[in-house]
C-alpha cells in the first residue's frame, strides 16, 4: 500500500544541516496496522508527514497505491490526499469556529457532493465514533477524548484507504487513549483500513500488527 524507498530528509538552516531521516526503506501492506516508535526528535513525525504527502522528502521515492507521488502538482497532491488519506493529529486540529458536524464534513467539501450527501456521510462517521449526540457542539465544548473522536470521524468520513495518526493518544489519559485505540483497531479490522500510527506508548504499539523503531533518523527495527 505504501512504499518508501531510500527516503532522506535534511533540514537546512543558514549554519546547520540536520539529517532528520536517513535512508528509510519501508513497506506498509494493505490492511496493515503499523506503529512507529522512537525517542522525541528521532524523525517519527517527519516520516509520517512524508507518507502523508504533507512534506516532500529531500531524496527517495514515495509510492502509494502503486502510484509514484514525485512530481505531483499542488492540485494533484490535494486531490490525492483527499481521496486516499486521512489524518489524525496529537492536538486534534479541529476548527474551533465550526460545529462538530461541519468539522467532520470538511474533507467532503473538496469533493463533488451535495450538502445533503455530505451531511449524511458526516453523521454516519460520527455514529461510528459514538458522537451522534454531539453534532451541534463546538469543539471547545468537548473533552480531549471526544475531540479526538471527532478528528477520527473527520479522518474516516471520506473513506480513505489509509489513515495516518500522529500520536493520537498522546494528549489523553489512559482510559480515553484506550477508547481511541479501540476505535482505530475496529476500523482496521472491520473496514480493512491501513493505519500507520506514531506513538510513544509501548502498550498502544503492542496492539498493532507491526512495530517500526526509529533512532536519530534511522530505522533500527
Amino acid at each position: 500500500m505504501i512504499q518508501l524507498r531510500n527516503i532522506e530528509k535534511v533540514y537546512k538552516t543558514d549554519t546547520i544541516e540536520t539529517m532528520a531521516l536517513h535512508k528509510i526503506n519501508l513497506e506498509v501492506d494493505n490492511g496493515e496496522f503499523l506503529s512507529v516508535m522512537g525517542p522525541s526528535g528521532c524523525g517519527k513525525s517527519t516520516l509520517l508527514n512524508i507518507m502523508g504527502l504533507l512534506d516532500a522528502p529531500s531524496k527517495g521515492e514515495v509510492t502509494i497505491s502503486e502510484q509514484l507521488t514525485a512530481g505531483f502538482s499542488d492540485k494533484a497532491l490535494a486531490v490525492f490526499r483527499n481521496k486516499k488519506l486521512g489524518f489524525i493529529f496529537q492536538s486534534y486540529h479541529l476548527i474551533n469556529d465550526l460545529r462538530v458536524l461541519d468539522n467532520v464534513e470538511l474533507p467532503l467539501l473538496y469533493r463533488n457532493l451535495t450538502a445533503a450527501e455530505r451531511t449524511a456521510l458526516a453523521k454516519e462517521a460520527l455514529g461510528k465514533v459514538g458522537l451522534s449526540n454531539r453534532m451541534k457542539h463546538f469543539p471547545t465544548q468537548l473533552s480531549g477524548g471526544q475531540k479526538q473522536r471527532v478528528a477520527i470521524a473527520r479522518a474516516i468520513v471520506g473513506q480513505p484507504q489509509i489513515i495516518l495518526a500522529d500520536e493520537p493518544t498522546g494528549n489523553l489519559d489512559s482510559a480515553m487513549g484506550n477508547d481511541i485505540m479501540e476505535i482505530l483497531t475496529q476500523l482496521n479490522q472491520r473496514e480493512g483500513t491501513t493505519i500507520v500510527m506514531v506513538t510513544h506508548d509501548e502498550n498502544m504499539a503492542r496492539k498493532t500488527h507491526r512495530l517500526v523503531r526509529l533512532f536519530d533518523g534511522s530505522q533500527v527495527l
Binding site: L54, D74, L77, A78, V79, F87, P107, R154, G158
Partner: peptide
C-alpha cells in the same frame, strides 16, 4: 488541516 484534507492552494 484544510490542505491536509484536500484543499489546494487555489481553493
Amino acid at each position: 488541516v484544510r490542505k491536509a484534507f484536500g484543499a489546494s492552494s487555489g481553493t
